[in-house]
Write a protein that binds this DNA or RNA. Structure first.
Length: 466
RNA sequence: GGCCCCGUCGUCUAGCGGUUAGGACGCCGGCCUUUCAAGCCGGAGGUCGCGGGUUCGAAUCCCGUCGGGGCUACCA
């Protein structure tokens, strides 16, 4: 049997981080088993579904590298088939029409609440004769749930979960306007798409019981269910916009790498012993449902950032230049060919010190800035009167000795200057760093000088020394 | 209210009857050193939610309890 999984978001907002993890798990499971990963857009709520959200979901999945194996299915397009199934159930006596009004239903719920009884549809029209139906009112179609016995879900993550059928009420399959509800649509689509494993958020666990009854009523095989725990915010509640829980696009914008996000999300609820850094290839090899935890996890930006720093160092220098170029551009620093060459050459030292693309761009700015370069506060403080003295001497010696403009030679030369000056090396190096980078921190000084080149170094020194 | 799920350092987690309860992030200190990172070394941090049991022995099994979360729509 070929494994078929699916990710089925409703396009009512961006692809949030919890959805991204669900998609990742589905994708990994399919890849691990050599199966297929499908995408279905659950857009049956016409009020809340938007094209912008659909695009955001596609973009997010694309960025994360979670590509579906077939064209996405749009659930709304399949509404005729969904209704067909409901009508079949109706014809077979497994569903019935219900003429209760919204007001009646609200009253029903309120009464139940007041009496502290379970809140569910009371089955008014289950046995009532349709001839008693009020005129001029469109009925909904409800499924006839079994009223005795129990429904068992052998969940691949949660284990065996049992609920008494008496707890299940006759849910709506078709709305009064004839459109299918989610409970109907998911089942029909999962069946028709041949989905073998339904991996989704824990918030659907209770729905699984209801949906199982629709599968049964149609005589269809149940897929394997796997309900993965939700991701919580720092306060322990389901992650939402309130927590600043953002769409994956926000993590991209703040400079995260997709491979870092994947690794982070993977470790949120899934483990393989003590392994932390797990490549996607390795994840495909290792991933399985039995190692998925059952308890919810809190989102931790610090850990994501640490992982991101790791993957940043692994990235190709040229790729990183391309990735930060637009950011530098946004900072008002145009990356021309010369700047690109410098960045490319200086990237090894730069990426070692960065955690995200935004601070990588920030720390790379001095390579791109045109003279005279801006000085930050720390640099300005470094350039006191004594520092000027030393820098003048250094500049003169640099001219006179003319060491080859490469790292080792430059360093040896600077050290000899400091020595003849009778000061610790730092007393010369720090002011020099300030003059050349406008910062108190930077990659190795002589690496910077080699990248900048003789003319630029002399120019920047002149800007400071006059 | 009802039903369902969950509960190991601050956080993510390993653990599946016998471990000094391990790792990672974060935090602190050291080494390295031209700054900052990285790297390496070390440290603080957990009475395994709590209470009973079972057992020679329990984070691991059972029961209860408390806490958290989810669902309870003609939303998905």
């Amino acid at each position: 049997m070929t494994v078929i999984t699916r990710f089925a978001p409703s396009p009512t907002g961006f692809l949030h981080i919890g959805g991204a993890r669900t998609a990742l798990f589905n994708w990994l499971y399919a890849r691990h088993h050599g199966g297929q990963f499908l995408l279905r857009i659950e857009d049956t709520d016409r009020q809340r579904s938007t094209d912008a959200a659909i695009d955001a979901i596609f973009d997010g999945l694309d960025w994360l590298g979670l590509h579906a194996d077939q064209k996405p299915v749009f659930q709304f397009d399949r509404r005729v088939r969904h209704a067909e199934v409901a009508h079949q159930l109706l014809a077979e006596g497994k569903a019935y029409r219900c003429w209760c009004t919204q007001d009646e239903l609200v009253a029903m719920r309120e009464k139940a609440r007041a009496e502290k009884k379970p809140i569910r549809y009371d089955g008014t029209w289950r046995d009532r004769d349709p001839s008693e139906a009020p005129a001029g009112l469109d009925p909904v179609v409800r499924i006839k749930m079994p009223q005795t016995g129990e429904t068992v879900i052998e969940d691949a993550v949660q284990g065996r979960v049992v609920v008494q059928n008496a707890e299940l009420d006759d849910m709506v399959l078709l709305r009064a306007d004839g459109t299918p509800t989610y409970m109907l649509s998911v089942v029909v689509d999962d069946h028709d798409m041949g989905v073998t494993h339904v991996i989704r958020g824990d918030d659907h666990l209770n729905n699984a019981f209801r949906q199982a009854q629709v599968f049964l009523a149609m005589g269809w095989d149940l897929p394997v269910f796997a309900h993965i725990p939700l991701i919580h915010g720092p306060d322990g509640a389901k992650l939402s916009k309130r927590h600043g829980a953002l769409g994956v696009d926000a993590y991209r914008d703040m400079g995260c790498l997709p491979e870092a996000v994947r690794n982070y999300l993977l470790r949120l609820g899934w483990a393989h012993g003590d392994d932390e850094i797990i490549s996607t290839e390795q994840a495909i090899q290792w991933f399985d449902l039995d190692a998925v935890g059952r308890s919810p996890a809190r989102f931790d930006m610090d850990k994501l950032t640490a992982l991101n720093a790791h993957y940043l160092r692994l990235r190709d220098d040229g790729e990183l230049v391309d990735l930060i170029a637009p950011r530098l551009d946004a900072m008002g620093l145009a990356v021309d060919a010369a700047a690109q060459a410098r960045l490319r050459q200086g990237m090894a030292g730069l990426k070692q010190r960065a955690r995200k693309l935004d601070d990588l761009a920030e720390s790379a700015a001095f390579y791109v800035a045109s003279r005279p370069i801006p000085m930050d506060e720390k640099a300005a403080k470094l350039l006191d009167v004594d520092a000027f003295q030393r820098l003048r001497v250094y500049r003169d010696r640099l001219r006179a000795d003319a060491p080859p403009f490469e790292e080792a030679a430059l360093e040896a030369h600077a050290r000899s200057v400091a020595e003849s000056l009778g000061v610790g090396f730092g007393k010369l190096a720090q002011p020099l760093r300030a003059a050349l980078t406008g910062r108190g921190v930077s990659p190795g000084l002589f690496e910077v000088m080699a990248v900048l080149g003789k003319a630029e170094v002399e120019g920047r020194l002149a800007d400071v020394l006059g």
